[in-house]
Design a protein around this nucleic acid. Structure first.
Lengths: 412, 412
DNA sequence: CAGGTTTGTGTTCCTCTCTTGCAAATGTCT
DNA sequence: AGACATTTGCAAGAGAGGAACACAAACCTG
């Protein structure tokens, strides 16, 4: 009769879930913490923390270790640390010119990582899935001691419909409405849920949680390769939009007098700051791909004027678009990833100059522009974070109901 | 020692707060609900709802009334209704060419409203505060039965620093770093907290909660008068940004070859879609203000070509900027307010055409553009919502601790 | 129009979870 | 070594929602 949009009531069951979630999440994001730090960060009492941590210890999620000597007075507080081997996820990435796989433990530790080049041609779903499965199998063979992953996260260079993992559009892969999530789930056959998302959105997530935007609540991540993707964090939450296509900043109209874009419209940001625009400005071969861009950046480092100037012009257009985003979103940090992080030193002055010229004082004063600190792996690590999300949101589902046993503290 | 960013743990005290908050919020937003509807919407059990509603009845927040006959089988469920007279807020607005005051009851009922014209000249803080206090006094004199407001919300045409209610910049008022909140609090002397916010942000809030964007989670509100302001809702939450200056869409760079903007930069959206641009295109006096715009719209209604064409060009530029916002934010609804809602019929086709041409299919398919349904009062009503927010977030603070009395159901 | 069905209420425990309070432990500082 | 600060462990307590039963009031059916 009624269709509740969201059940907002708090029940005792949800209280426990929220509190366990808070503890696991803090440990995942900050690393080992003492019990008293957990008390401070969650606002719960010592007794509650004791009981909850006890449950997590019983479920092999965390261990308690001897206290660190910090030189502070008072009884030392045991360190609570996640058991990174007991819970792992599989992270996959389908980038424009590479495939990557990683096994990541709870807490963010990367146990295994491998990246292979991929030709920039259109590829069939089957080939890509086969390659990824092959990489995943290698990873598991190399480290057989790991558990079955509790989830699989996939970063893909394309527009992804989050509800079913279908890639609605992947121009660099030649994909339209490709059911990547379902095929990967079947091919991997791990029994773990497979979550697919856009690579820039995941890059933003990774930089937000573990990279250059750590601690900021409002973040814009701009990922430039062939196309320009973006990921946005607003108030500490990824901006997804009505049907999950938010953050597509590459196709903001920026120059009404500009060039036609491969998306069909004209004057998109991508047409001014994408790889092709950069190469064209410097007079490099437009189909030179990553190597040509690398050469261009190397030439700029040696002071070759065409390269320097091309990067400066790109930086200006980058700044123009960012100024708009600064006004609209008032972010704390803008992270430049992909090609923009590799070319960062040659762009940043012009980017900042445009932001200063075009953005409102109040907003531009608080923003800083930084290169991606996770480098090429940002989307891959974001995919791992995506795969961990269900666990972080509800550890109870993996922990099982309370055992009833009195929690026992065993300090090693 | 530690500075918790946010206390994320759920304590028994916060559970009660959250549940009462959920009930009061649902009633505030949806109007009277039966108990069984509350059960469905909160996910709590009948027992819990009964107990919580009993407390609210005891605190004179709500009344329970005889059930409505809906023609559905089963025992009728009493209607729970907020007592709109027992809790009111004072809403104030400082618009470009008017001042307004309203007394609004919990649930959104407007008990009193008055709007007076204001010359478009720069005004001193003292004069504005005096005028507002005068209006507020009249309102309270006219309806002396009302309680003292539990809060005061102020919508102002300018950039507002939320933490202290200082208007950092109000170009139409000639204000720079004006401590509006503090002065109003002192002058009104109501003992109630005074919250100040940007008028477009509050317009967005009002349209989101009670207007054209009701039910949507992702909303863009564009408010056009002299300048162009914006308010953004992302995932059901107002986008505030790092220091509260988010949503300033009027100064997105839209046309690098455009005109200088009064903000100091060039080619801002405002320079293409603001009042002055519109009047200039039609050949009307640039300082004609609201009357000139009204005349222009009236002329367009009669088919005068200059007026129609000027509105169409404005609509196109409006569409260009909105296309960018559609790509970035993937909203469900775009609400056009202020001048754009009055000129809506003459703009909308060109707006939609530009969005179709420039925005990505996936995002533009789900978005609709609607005129503000609350008209000129949207920011004022948003100010009321702002003032209610502390109550909605924590009814316990106004209700007091549980009485211990057994909740008694008394159906009138 | 009687009886069945459905939906919802009132009431009484019950369970779950966090809180409180006290004593003990364990470090630093003087 | 003693004072002091901080944290832990444990046990009892309090607050809040949940479950189950009996009953009530509407609609629907034959």
């Amino acid at each position: 009769m009624f269709t509740p949009r969201e059940e907002v009531g708090q029940r005792s069951e949800t209280v426990r879930r929220a509190n366990l979630s808070a503890i696991v999440r803090e440990l995942h994001l900050r690393g080992p913490l003492s019990r008293s730090e957990l008390v401070a960060w969650t606002g719960l009492t010592r007794s509650a923390i004791r009981s909850l941590v006890g449950d997590l210890v019983a479920g092999d999620f965390v261990v308690e270790e001897a206290a660190l000597r910090l030189g502070t007075p008072g009884r030392p507080s045991p360190q609570v640390r996640l058991v990174a081997d007991s819970v792992v996820v599989l992270a996959l990435e389908i980038a424009v010119d590479s495939l990557a796989v990683a096994i990541v433990g709870l807490g963010g530790e990367v146990h295994w990582k491998e990246r292979v080049d991929r030709p920039r041609a259109h590829s069939s779903l089957g080939d890509i899935v086969d390659d990824l499965c092959h990489l995943a199998k290698r990873a598991r063979d190399q480290r057989p001691s790991y558990q079955t992953p509790i989830g699989v996260g996939v970063a893909v260079a394309g527009l992804v419909r989050p509800i079913d993992g279908v890639v609605a559009a992947g121009p660099n892969l030649g994909w339209i409405d490709v059911p990547l999530g379902a095929h990967l789930a079947a091919a991997l056959d791990l029994g773990a849920p497979v979550e697919v998302a856009n690579e820039a959105d995941l890059g933003a997530l990774a930089e937000f949680r573990r990279g250059a935007a750590r601690g900021a609540e409002d973040v814009v991540y701009v990922h430039g390769e062939v196309g320009v993707g973006g990921g946005i964090i607003v108030g500490g939450r990824p901006l997804s939009g009505t049907n999950g296509f938010g953050g597509e900043i590459g196709h903001m109209p920026i120059n009404p007098a500009g060039r036609p874009c491969r998306c069909g419209s004209t004057g998109c940001w991508e047409t001014e700051i994408g790889e092709v625009a950069l190469l064209a400005r410097a007079g490099y071969p437009l189909d030179g791909g990553r190597m040509a861009v690398a050469a261009l950046i190397a030439d700029a480092a040696e002071g070759r004027p065409e390269a320097v100037e091309a990067l400066r012009v790109t930086g200006r257009w980058l700044g123009v678009g960012l100024a708009g985003l600064v006004n609209v979103l008032n972010p704390r940090v803008i992270v430049l990833g992909g090609l923009f992080s590799r070319a960062f030193p040659y762009l940043i002055d012009d980017v900042n100059a445009e932001i200063s010229a075009l953005a409102l004082v109040a907003s531009r004063r608080v923003v800083s522009v930084a290169p991606a600190s996770l480098g090429i792996d940002a989307p891959l690590l974001g995919a791992a974070e995506l795969a961990f999300e269900p666990l972080l949101a509800d550890p109870v589902a993996w922990l099982g109901p309370r055992t009833g046993a009195v929690p026992q503290l065993v300090v090693a």
